[in-house]
Design a protein around this nucleic acid. Structure first.
Lengths: 200, 200
DNA sequence: GTCTATAAGTTGATAGAC
DNA sequence: GTCTATCAACTTATAGAC
């Protein structure tokens, strides 16, 4: 970001393309075309190739833009204020995770349905990607454990997998079924109630 | 299935197309082409349109073929023999779920990344689909609870969400990262160990 | 029911003007 | 840095022979 601007300043085409691609990703998935993105973004199709090289380069840029958020605690967990009640705090954590996974679902779906994107992820060597959310939540549990608010016997990574699994599961079914999902899903409060004995 | 066969018997083109489409789905995702499927299946491309009408019809047929398995306990849970030890039984359940979700990942990825397929799912009105796995596991927990092997206070749906969430989470990260995922994921045994207090 | 041949439209990508 | 114009390859889909 400390890079000095040289040459002609951008007129926002790159940004418009990235934004539009993110939108189309949520609708058509990775079966998106550079032509349609250019049309919807109101730019020339050739500008996409100027900025991103080829179609995969565009996909890499869009996906890659979202990959770092998985290690950002504020984004993954949402805003929470610990008020001392473990139950309420866990409800806030799972709800935050659910909202996060609901928002990131198009990116997650693209990664799951395109081998080239998975290879891009593997090439990054693990320094970015969905798996880092586990570390974020595990760190939170370690802190809470040190403060004595969570049982000393709890394995932080295992606890993180359970909380994330619950939030992700609710988010995925809501994404797939829409409002009808609530008829099948147990409420966050019920899930936390069931999980509570494992955390005290 | 009780339908009598009329007219000329099939020569297996339909089945070959369905099988091949399932394979391609795991590689290219929903960005698959009828041409490539025909080539890999060794059939004429026009045969695809004869059997499935159009491209979406083919996708619907392939996805629809997999949707009912989510309500099949044997498939979802895998083969387990309850030997009386709750801990070992839960490990078997989560491991079974992990294997199931690992196999079904291409279908799940396609649903998450294509709006048309999600609409197909919604049109089915909930009688098939990924959400039914919740009922399968919840039923298992109800049985175990009635037998006194699981705590009476446990909500079956909440318990199911936690078990499925854990298995699905492990499956997804293994699918995205391959063997490297094991470095980040807590082992099934550790997860069950952490979850155990919620189930007794 | 499966094939070959073909059509019209879309695709990702490049060249060159400004 | 962005555009218009263009291209060959590929896309989905149809017609008609066997």
């Amino acid at each position: 970001m400390a890079q000095a601007r040289r040459g002609r300043p951008s007129t926002g085409v790159r940004e418009a393309v990235l934004r539009t691609t993110g939108e189309v990703l949520g609708e058509a998935g990775i079966a998106l075309s550079t032509k349609e993105i250019a049309r919807r973004a109101g730019v020339a199709e050739s500008s996409i190739f100027y900025h991103f090289g080829d179609r995969l380069g565009l996909l890499e840029a869009v996906i890659g833009e979202h990959l770092p958020v998985f290690s950002d605690a504020t984004v993954v967990l949402g805003s929470r204020d610990a008020d001392g009640d473990l139950r309420a705090d866990l409800v806030a954590v799972v709800s935050g995770l659910e909202g996060f996974y609901l928002r990131i679902m198009p990116v997650l779906g693209a990664l799951q349905s395109d081998r080239q994107l998975r290879e891009l992820l593997a090439r990054r060597g693990g320094d970015v990607g969905p798996h880092l959310a586990l570390g974020v939540v595990a760190d939170l549990l370690r802190t809470e454990r040190a403060a004595g608010r969570v049982g000393a016997a709890l394995d932080p990574k295992a606890g993180a997998l359970l909380l994330i699994g619950a939030g992700h599961q609710r988010a995925m079914h809501r994404y797939l079924l829409g409002a009808a999902a609530e008829d099948f899903l147990p409420p966050v409060e019920t899930v936390v109630e069931a999980l509570l004995p494992a955390f005290v």
